[in-house]
Simulated assay, not measured.
Amino acid sequence: MKPWYETSFGNDYMLVYKHRDMEAARKEIERMITLLGLPQGAKVLDIGCGMGRHSVALSDLGFAVTGVDLSDDLLEEARRHDAYGEVEWIHGDMRELPFEDGSFDATVNLFTSFGYFARESDNVGVLRNIRRVLRPGGLCLIDFLNPNYVAEHLVPHSVREDEEEGVRIDEVRTIDGDWVKKEITITELVVKEGKDAKRQYMERVRLYELDWFREHFASSGLELIGVYGNYDGTPYREADSNRLVMIGRAI
């Protein structure tokens, strides 16, 4: 059986998250990029770029952007968003980034695109790959969930109908040890030819605390220089910040 991240990031993923639009991505990027303080033209790698919303927003702000993702379906959608063909789109695994050492001035990893892997060494390996592709002094930004906020605000079950797409989306969320899991069931309201009446997916992410990142940034050659609770630079508070946004510098 394939791991969840090889099966869940397809056309149905785009349906589930279609409410996350380009305008929201631009606002998020404008806030986050201020934290990095990068000069115009800096080479930026978007790791786990998905549908490309943030990569295109970065490009529009004047950065030389490369987006890498494991999903061919999402990369195809990303190319559609990139009207002027300014972004370089690459198929690749974040554990083995297909770039030369020191290729980038900065990397970004957004929308909780971290902590996917069952093996601890694989998640640590992502950080080591980030360090490898950064030039000395280069910066990385990881936008992650705050485990405490997730535990406090988890919505166990939600259902919504998308009349335009003709589907019902049923999401069940649980915390299982040090994982947060989401089971997604998509049901066709009217069964279409060539489509299963019901399709199910799983998403799961490790509930890593800030201390875990402190330890493994350091062991990977990254200095943790900033920790924020949101995209606007609000200080991180373990008890109630809704995000864990971290900036590291390549040593």
Results as ranks from 00 to 15, higher is better:
K2M: 09
F9I: 06
D12H: 13
D12M: 01
M14P: 01
L15Y: 03
H19C: 03
A25H: 11
R26H: 10
R31Q: 13
T34R: 15
L36S: 09
G37K: 13
I47P: 00
C49T: 15
M51S: 14
H54S: 11
A57N: 11
D60Y: 08
G62A: 12
G67N: 11
L70D: 09
R79N: 05
H81I: 03
D82W: 05
E88P: 00
D93L: 07
M94A: 02
F99W: 02
A106S: 14
L110E: 02
S121N: 13
D122R: 06
N123S: 07
N123G: 05
N123E: 08
R128T: 09
N148L: 10
Y149I: 05
E152Q: 15
L154T: 08
L154Y: 09
V155L: 12
R160H: 11
R168Y: 03
E171A: 06
V172N: 02
V191Q: 13
R204T: 02
D211K: 14
H216P: 06
G221D: 10
G229M: 08
G229A: 09
Y231M: 14
G233E: 13
T234D: 12
R237P: 00
A239G: 11
A239Y: 14
D240W: 12
S241W: 07
M246H: 10
R249H: 06
